[in-house]
Design a protein around this nucleic acid. Structure first.
Lengths: 234, 234
DNA sequence: TAGATTGTTAATCGATTAACAATC
DNA sequence: TAGATTGTTAATCGATTAACAATC
């Protein structure tokens, strides 16, 4: 691939999804004072194979040195830039139940690149309460928040209100939504919804757990049970 | 595919990951008193295309009726059975910070198939406290829990303790782990780890958000911006 | 039977992997 | 130069999709 940055286009979704993990691994190396890593070392830390890592990085540009490896800080910066973490994205969390409360306090938001600018709830008796140093506002506040710039909406309401809240976010121009409610959201095609779903994850685990149990009792005679996971690769 | 259930083998990972969504959609239909659906209707409710839904279901067996559709209750049962939800999986949550607290109270666990049997924390001043009706126990309790049967461990500790907790779970025989800590866990290959990671999801959103911003200001001249998401398909 | 809809086929698309030429 | 490691190629693998024969 060309070294010309303007030629870098169309990074595969699967690659984008792994960049955060690479960035995290690089941060870990930097904290331990390591300034240079090979694709083999970085891949091991990120839990993938080195061929996949190199292929992924090749989509961003050519940031390694043959025979040497990657400079930790430089590669971390390039990945950060590609992910858009060199700027700040204002985030609003909607729904201040147990989950929203935990999210407001969660350090994941505190990572570089994101700033929780508002906590919203439609329940009037939560309004004015302070959570993690931020005052809970009513849903009406969305319009003025959007005017000040709001990039990401996090939906932590019950499933029954999620679509309504989503529609309100879309109406004020928010195009990136992280949905914790266990339901499918319908959005215009230029809106990006990602979903974090506990019970889906549990059910996927249950599937494999059952599979092992059946294999153990010999119910699946003709099946050799595949490794489900391994330290590298996935 | 054969109607013989013993011939149903090797359901693709991508299909397994969608089964919970189909099940949820079916539950929704059942609640509204709808007893029969076409692949078109069910697919729309689950946010996929009908061809994908039919292909997915074909891996489970032949549970539809040509010219008619699927019987809601029957298909829901078959998917539940395939996912292993017709039995109860004992779950332990480890780490009773904000997140663990929210998880303990979260209704996602209350869905059929899972039962939170223990809350654990290594912090001695949380011990004995009751959260969501369950008493917090020390990590030592893991051994006896495992003897009584423990299928799934949910790690809600800080990243720094996650690998240690994971090792303890693996040591007592737990082979299904849901990791909320932002780190890669190293496990034997017969252990299944799934990860729920807030900041990874945010970073993926940021990538697309930045992409839209750059496209809007014309920085990506040669790129037509692809739809990022749509109501159907993904 | 006529109309409807499934289950399957075959083509396409995208992701992964191993191997190695390029090159520090 | 000799050794090491990247970036890329090409083969493989798996997932998606549209179309349609099977069949209720």
């Amino acid at each position: 691939m060309s070294a010309d940055p303007s030629a870098r286009r169309g990074i595969p979704d699967a690659t984008v999804a792994r960049l955060p993990e690479y960035l995290r691994a690089l941060t870990g190396f930097a904290e331990r004072g390591i300034t240079s890593v090979s694709s083999e070392e970085l891949a091991a830390a990120a839990g993938v194979r080195s061929a996949k890592l190199r292929k992924d990085l090749s989509h961003l540009g050519s940031y390694g040195v043959r025979g040497v490896g990657y400079e930790v800080d430089h590669l971390a910066y390039q990945i950060s830039r590609e992910l858009g973490l060199t700027q700040d994205w204002p985030v609003a969390i909607i729904g201040m139940g147990n989950l929203g409360h935990a999210l407001a306090a969660y350090s994941g938001f505190a990572t570089r690149g994101f700033r929780v600018v508002a906590l919203l709830d439609q329940d009037s008796h939560l309004l004015g309460q302070e959570i993690a140093g931020i005052t809970v506002q009513p849903m009406d506040a969305l319009t003025s928040l959007a005017e000040q710039g709001l990039a990401i909406g996090v939906i932590a309401t019950p499933a029954a209100s999620a679509q309504d809240v989503c529609d309100q976010l879309v109406a004020v121009g928010v195009r990136s939504i992280l949905n914790f409610a266990p339901c499918v959201l319908v959005v215009p095609e230029d809106v990006d919804v990602r979903k974090v779903d506990l019970s889906t994850e549990l059910q996927i685990l249950a599937f494999h757990e059952q599979r092992r149990a059946l294999a153990a009792e010999g119910a699946l005679e003709h099946v050799t049970l595949e490794p489900i996971n391994s330290a590298v690769g996935r």
